[in-house]
């Protein structure tokens, strides 16, 4: 069964999926994690992904972020068909077009903030000066400019997630993928992160964010629900 999600075009079509599906095949069972779906996401959109646990949200995000290959269908990222690309080209697309934010921050403990944020830039041919400049800009955006020599464990959870956001921003990606970015934070810190993401979105970066929080989902412009592997567009009342 093929579902079609209405196109909500507001700018350039960043992400275009046609008949994309994902199944995991193990020795014993085949799990259909995502049923075939079509999806278009335009530049500047803020899309929330909601749904129960185990429904396929992370799987969807991994496919969108080129961390995992889809098993069927076509996926065009920024107009480019990514089916069958080499590991190298996919890595470089991830590096230049996509920024990742994870629930558990995923900072490298033995590197200080500067080095953590610089890490994606190391896989590009930037000069040392450009790298430093970009890292400092990103740190400023998340309000941690004075802390570049600190280590992750010296920061609060909210601050650590800000560093992770700075790392995702440093490469000036076309869109950010966030998998429950506030899942490990208390509500006050979560609000801060949410405000920051909205701010980043205002400045033109598309965001795809998995969340369990209906409040946050409402703050995004568009909500996609995944249930047992089926994607559906949700029309949420804009007020609680």
């Amino acid at each position: 069964m093929l579902q079609t999600i209405s196109e909500n075009a507001k700018g350039y079509n960043m992400l275009k999926m046609r008949g994309v599906a994902k199944s995991f095949v193990t020795k014993t069972v085949e799990t259909q994690a995502l049923q075939p779906f079509d999806l278009d996401i335009s530049q500047g959109e803020f899309v929330a992904i909601v749904g129960p646990s185990g429904s396929g949200k992370t799987t969807f995000l991994n496919i969108a972020g080129l961390l995992e290959a889809h098993s069927e269908g076509q996926y065009y990222l920024d107009g480019k068909d990514i089916t069958g690309l080499s590991d190298r080209s996919k890595s470089s697309l991830r590096n230049q077009k996509i920024g990742f934010i994870f629930q558990s921050f995923n900072l490298i403990p033995e590197l200080n903030l500067f080095d953590n944020i610089e890490m994606p830039l190391r896989y590009r041919t930037f000069s040392r000066k450009v790298r430093a400049q970009r890292v400092m800009e990103a740190l400023e955006k998340v309000g941690l400019a004075g802390r570049k020599s600190h280590y992750p464990q010296q920061l609060s959870g909210g601050q650590q997630q800000r560093v992770a956001i700075a790392r995702a921003l440093a490469g000036s990606p076309s869109f950010l993928l966030a998998d429950e970015p506030t899942g490990n934070l208390d509500s006050k810190m979560a609000d801060g992160i949410m405000a920051l993401l909205k701010d980043i979105n205002q400045q033109g970066t598309s965001i795809l964010m998995v969340t369990h929080d209906m409040d946050q989902a409402r703050q995004a412009g568009r909500v996609v629900e995944i249930r047992d592997g089926y994607l559906t567009e949700q029309q949420l009342a804009l007020t609680a």
């Binding site: 190298r88 590096n95 896989y123």
Partner: peptide
């Protein structure tokens, strides 16, 4: 593994 996954995610190729 965690660091490798992260580096791969942010753009390191297998070769890197």
């Amino acid at each position: 593994g965690g660091e490798i996954g992260l580096r791969r995610a942010v753009g390191a190729s297998k070769k890197d």
